[in-house]
Amino acid sequence: MAEQKAKTPRRTTPKLTELDTKQFWEATKDKVLSYQQCDDCKTVVFYPRAHCTGCTSGTLSWKTASGKGTVYSYSVVRQSYHPFYKQMVPYAVAWIDLDEGPRLMSNVVGIDDPSKDIKIGQKVELEWEDGETVNFPIFKVVS
């Protein structure tokens, strides 16, 4: 039997078999951050899904977000048992409000001390972290 390579720990990777969010993650391969808006009632729908939550007649269109947003809230993870994330501690997780409306959970990176250098209300912008099958939309502080 061939020698097995030690598996490198990875981020929890989304499943492209999940039908509502598949297109969002497919778009990340081209480093496009996308969201949906209803053609009829203009409701911004996020997380992605096949129906409009604002009206029953809606047809949803995919839009591209600018990648600009604001930290709604955050925490700094100091303890994790996950093989990938435990090597990242301490790291910041955050709810990010994109300028176009969607609120998504992500990371804030590129700071010296995540417990001191992040504030609620702070402006952030999109940065892509390369993954094996999809790319990950994470955020850096706008200085």
Binding site: T21, Y85, M105, S106, N107
Partner: peptide, 11 residues
């Protein structure tokens, strides 16, 4: 599928 990549823990 949208959130778990962030590594957010329950705490």
């Amino acid at each position: 599928n949208m959130e778990s990549f962030s590594g957010s823990t329950l705490v």
